[in-house]
Computed example of a mutant assay.
Amino acid sequence: MAFWRTKKAPPDDSVSSTEAAPKSGGGLFSKMRAGLQKTRRTLNTDIRDLFKSEGRLVDDTLLNELFAKLIRTDMGIGPAETIRDDVATRLRGRVVHFEEVVQTITEQTRTMLQQESTELRLADTGPTVILVVGVNGSGKTTSIGKLANHLHQAGHKVVLGAGDTFRAAAVEQLTVWAGRIGCDIVTGKPEADPASVAFQCVEQAIATGADIAIIDTAGRLQTQTNLMQQLEKIRRVVEKKIEGAPHEVLLVLDATAGQNAISQARGFSEAAGCTGIVLAKLDGSAKGGVVLPIREQFQLPVKFVGLGEGVEDIAPFDPASFANALFSE
């Protein structure tokens, strides 16, 4: 078992783009708007094409065409129907322009995305333990690095646990992130028991007075029973060290997966006891609407969204900013 106390490292041009140097940015809305650029462009172009300069009558034909355009963002039939029906209730029989319809859609989207809180649940005493799960290729390890940096910048002392011991690249990648951020990391030997890494990570967090321990796990499918049982073991091990841990089990979903992300969320939310979602790769997708069916079907709060490749390109999810950024020109 190895424990590394890293110092913040300077940018390294040899590191891949997923660990690119931080980008400068404005406020939360600006980050959301930039991250949703592809989805927004698709929506606005498609919806604008439905209207003439003199406006258009809101009738069944327009409503059906609008529904088809909304579906393209992978928001699913249910949310698309809700938005279409809201437009019908407010505007049917009127001649309206593009801007008026978009305003109505934005307001309804904001309402549908409301959730109790995006805040991380923190332990009453001692370190907060965050377990991060997801399928291979979802952006899980990169999201952990971004989340660790976000918490570090907010003044929290963070320890990382490289629990994906079966993939050397994941340990390497997380070690690079730790060096960039300037936080501690606990690693194990290749193919070591992930539960032992989790145990050591929590022990190290307690010993050093860290505020938060973030534990990576091996990517898996929700249908892989043995690996899902492994998650259960990790949960039991960390709970022995800290009562109530893990305090958060965050499921990382790839926004580019669209509707496939729904089945991932269903499987993991049941098997791993997920408490929240990190929606990764939002900037690379025109399917940002997938957040709507995720919220509709699972009632899992979206805690963070990944908005780019840089270490700072993550933001707490804010329904109002998301809805406005999704449709603003």
Rank of each mutant, 00 (worst) to 15 (best):
A2T: 15
F3A: 07
D13E: 14
V15T: 14
S16C: 06
E19I: 14
G35W: 01
L36H: 00
Q37K: 10
K38Q: 14
R41F: 06
T42F: 05
L43C: 01
L43W: 00
D46R: 09
I47W: 02
F51N: 08
E54P: 12
D60Y: 13
L62I: 11
E65C: 07
E65W: 07
F67T: 07
D74K: 01
G76C: 06
A88E: 14
R92T: 10
R94Q: 15
E107Q: 14
Q108L: 10
T111G: 08
L113V: 10
Q115N: 02
S117Q: 09
A123L: 11
A123Y: 09
D124H: 12
D124K: 13
G126Q: 03
P127G: 05
V129W: 04
V129A: 07
L131C: 15
V132M: 05
N136I: 08
G137Y: 07
H150C: 00
Q153N: 04
G155H: 01
F166N: 06
A169I: 14
Q173H: 13
T175F: 12
W177M: 04
R180M: 02
G182A: 04
D184C: 11
K189A: 13
E191P: 04
P194L: 12
F199A: 09
A207W: 13
T208D: 15
G209N: 03
I212W: 06
A213F: 04
D216M: 08
A218P: 02
G219W: 01
R220A: 11
T223G: 10
Q224W: 06
Q224A: 05
Q229K: 04
E232P: 12
K233Y: 11
I242V: 11
G244N: 10
G244E: 00
E248R: 09
L251H: 09
V252N: 10
L253K: 00
D254C: 06
A255N: 01
T256R: 01
G258Y: 10
S269G: 06
C274E: 01
V278K: 08
L282C: 01
D283E: 05
S285D: 02
A286D: 05
L292M: 05
Q299N: 15
L300Q: 02
L300D: 11
P301F: 03
V302K: 03
V302D: 00
K303Q: 14
G306I: 05
G306C: 07
L307D: 01
G308C: 04
I314D: 03
P316K: 11
A320I: 03
E329R: 09
